[in-house]
Amino acid sequence: MTARPLVHKTAMPGLGLSAGITLAMLSIVVLLPIGALLMKGASFGLSNVLEVVGRERVMASLILSFKLALLAALFNLVFGVLLAWVLVRYRFPGKRLLDAAVDLPFALPTAVAGIALTALYAPNGTFGSLAVQLGVKIAYTQAGIFIALVFVGLPFVTRTVQPVIEEIDREVEEASATLGASRLYTLRHVILPMLTPAALTGFALALARAVGEYGSVIFIAGNIPLRTEIAPLLIVIQLEEFNYDAAAAIGIAMLVISFAMLLAINLIQIVSRRKMGHV
């Protein structure tokens, strides 16, 4: 048995050029810098990395970042599926504007989103002053961080679920109705399972984005250590104090945790695809 060749021979030109550009840019821009982070961690030593990550302030910021990212992604999962359904299935005035507006969080720079949300939710802002009357403080608390993370993750679920809803065969729903299912039963047991894999993909993307988010959060967070200080901000603070080792340790912890989460969600997706059949 001969080994499979690395590259199959074809008549297509440009193998060397395209492979060269791809691998060179990938190495210089992505792989070497990430490698430098891992090397820094290795030279600092695993026990030292763990010591930094275990510090109360670092641990608190990591837990905060992941907890709020998870909550925001869950909110976006529910609202995103609802939004996708409304945008595909219903007709109403202003629908096209609404559809285009879903992408705004992708296009709007995070620093702009950050100061805009702060202006809205600060105690003297439009929504913030309403909340104050109800005795709730939003900006400079964890609620403010949650809102910023919901904003940046908003488009992901809607944009992954929308094309799936568009391709649903109406006959399936008709069959369900003919067999006596109520509309809600059909939605719950026929439609929702078909949307699950795409919705989970969107959820994973929103989660990955929210975990590392910096620009839109730091303005509204108030950045109080142990309470509203997110992990990326702590990296920036360590860098400003030239604590490269500590910054690298927190960076490695964030890399590891976000990869672990993505891996877990990919597994869930594979399982749900298998359970629901090919969608």
């Binding site: 810098p33 993307l205 590392g212 690298a248 964030m254």
Partner: peptide
């Protein structure tokens, strides 16, 4: 695997990306 590597920057925090560049070229 190559496609996964190309997608990698999506799951890296921008701050961590900046940190990586500082550690390599600082």
């Amino acid at each position: 695997f190559l496609i996964t590597l190309i997608d990698l920057p999506f799951s890296v925090s921008p701050v961590v990306a900046g940190l990586c560049i500082v550690l390599l070229f600082g």
